[in-house]
Simulated scan of single mutants.
Amino acid sequence: MSQDPNTEADPKKVQELQKEVERLNREKAEAQAQAEAEAHAAAAAADEKAATEMRMKQELESQKIAADAKMQSELEAQRLAAKESELKQKEKQAVNKSRKRKIIGGIILLIILVLIVLAASASVQVQPGQATSYPYITTYGVWFPIGQPVDISGHTLIALADGNEMMFSADGSVTKLVRNQPITIGEQSARLTTLFGKVPLMTINYKVILEYQGNTPDNQAYFKMLIQSDKSIPEFAVKFLLPKNVIAQPMAS
């Protein structure tokens, strides 16, 4: 019985098939190895990228912290500089104010000294005047000490108490007084000067009218005094027209 040639394996073909299988297996293994290598390289690259990004992030954060610290330091330096400048400005202003106060104080003191000198050296010269018009009237309440001579405008007056009556002696002439009885002291001219008579201030023509009002419990005679003058008389000038032992207070006209 003869053998079927189709059923017998050809050694050569078998060998070729084996080689082909081996080649395919080898290519598969190489492809697999290459894929694993590429996957490993990709993983390594990803890790490197992540590490690089982390380092960059840390570096940026470090730079940001350093920049913030520098900015804070500069702001603090500016604040301190501004505060120091403000303190210096306030000190300068305080010095200027103190200097101004001293200057103003010195000027005020000088003015006060000048006024004191002017007041201390002021004087008045009274002499008989001529009849003229007197558009200004100044009214005072005055208290004369009873029994003491009083000089008003060059006239010596003495208020004498005699029981319930008032006697008024004017330049040696004694007159009996009743309440609201006027006594006129004639026209006078007063020249007010200062700096010991060297600087004239004003010349006033005036006359004095006294109206007896009664006695006080402390032994004084109270009069209403009207000063009629050709010009307004400053209140400070009135004291030069009255002696020291007469008390005078302005009254409403």
Rank of each mutant, 00 (worst) to 15 (best):
L201E: 04
P200L: 07
H155I: 07
L201N: 06
S153M: 09
M166T: 08
V174T: 15
S169F: 01
P200G: 10
G163S: 04
S169H: 07
S169D: 15
G172N: 00
S173Y: 06
G172K: 00
L177I: 08
T184I: 11
A159K: 03
L157V: 15
P182T: 06
A170K: 12
G172E: 00
T156L: 07
G197D: 02
L195I: 13
I158V: 12
T184S: 11
P182D: 03
T156R: 10
N164D: 10
T194E: 04
R179G: 11
F196G: 03
E187P: 13
G186S: 15
T193H: 05
M166I: 07
A190P: 06
G163C: 05
A170S: 13
R179C: 14
G163N: 05
A190G: 09
M166K: 01
S173E: 09
D171R: 03
G197F: 07
P182V: 08
L192M: 11
S169G: 03
T184E: 09
G163F: 02
Q188P: 00
L177T: 05
G197V: 02
V199Y: 11
T194N: 08
L177C: 06
V199H: 08
N180D: 13
L157M: 14
M166Y: 01
F168Y: 11
M166V: 07
